[in-house]
């Protein structure tokens, strides 16, 4: 149950792109065609599924305050958490390199489809963000960390797939010249993010809110402003429709 909850939460409610804006750069740059978007999305799922559990182990057994106690009593007071940024990014950069080499060796066809995206991924904020959120949300077991990595990856994949499909279609609409390309993509992403916020109602039972503070704050705001939101949503949709006309 816990697994299922975390899985859906990381795909829909805490969606990487729409809730935390991670990996926006590649999301905007590589979403012009569905086929390339699928390639990059798959690579992100793959790398997140590897790096989040690895960084979880690193965090548990090396970086956390007192994590070194498995070495002996003398080390129990060490706190290396200030090193977490550098350790996480080093793990990610090495893993990406390693994955690239392994995939090239064993599956040239997969390499050809993922190949060009893998180096890009080392500097994709979604990957580092996955590890940092895993750390700040204090995910408890290795299994949950793996689950969180895959879930976040799928969430990112869905987001880039959706925007790529919309951008392929929007070529046929008459967007105002100054909004073409980047501008309209931003506004569409904003509207999609509003849509994804409605998933926030899926898991609002009891302790879920207590677990993540920022989420419950957001839910508070939603409750307060639900009417204004609807009015705003309508006018936003009208604007979007008008701009499309």
């Amino acid at each position: 149950m816990e697994h299922l909850e975390l899985f859906f939460k990381s795909i829909f409610i805490d969606n990487m792109v729409f809730a935390t804006f991670l990996g926006m750069c590649s999301y905007l740059a590589v979403s012009k065609k569905v086929s390339t978007a699928v390639g990059l999305g798959a690579a992100v799922i793959f790398v997140l599924a590897i790096t989040v559990p690895l960084n979880w182990l690193l965090d548990q057994y090396i970086l956390q305050p007192g994590a070194l106690s498995w070495l002996g009593e003398d080390y129990a007071s060490y706190d290396l958490s200030f090193l977490s940024f550098i350790m996480f990014i080093a793990t990610i950069a090495t893993m990406v390199q390693l994955v690239e080499i392994v995939v090239e060796k064993f599956s040239p066809s997969l390499y050809n489809s993922l190949g060009i995206f893998l180096p890009l991924i080392a500097v994709n904020c979604a990957i580092l963000g996955g590890s940092l959120f895993m750390q700040s949300r204090e995910i408890e077991t290795l299994g949950l960390a793996l689950n969180y990595g895959i879930g976040s990856g799928i969430g990112w994949f869905l987001a880039i797939l959706a925007i790529a499909a919309i951008r392929e279609k929007i070529r046929y609409s008459n967007v105002p010249p100054a909004l073409r390309g980047l501008g309209i993509t931003f506004i569409i992403t904003g509207l999609m993010a509003i849509g994804f916020m409605s998933f926030g109602g899926m898991l609002t039972g009891g302790d879920e809110e207590a677990k993540s503070e920022d989420k419950s704050a957001v839910i508070e705001v939603i409750k307060e402003d639900i009417k204004k939101e609807e009015a705003k949503l309508k006018s936003d949709l009208e604007i979007a429709e008008n701009t499309n006309k």
Partner: peptide, 26 residues
């Protein structure tokens, strides 16, 4: 407008900035 505090509005505000900038510089 509490809606401005929610994350999607950041995207829309940036979208509008881009719109204004590109209308001024064709």
């Amino acid at each position: 407008n509490g809606f401005m505090l929610l994350s999607p509005m950041a995207l829309i505000v940036v979208g509008i900035i881009i719109w204004v900038q590109r209308s001024r510089n064709k």
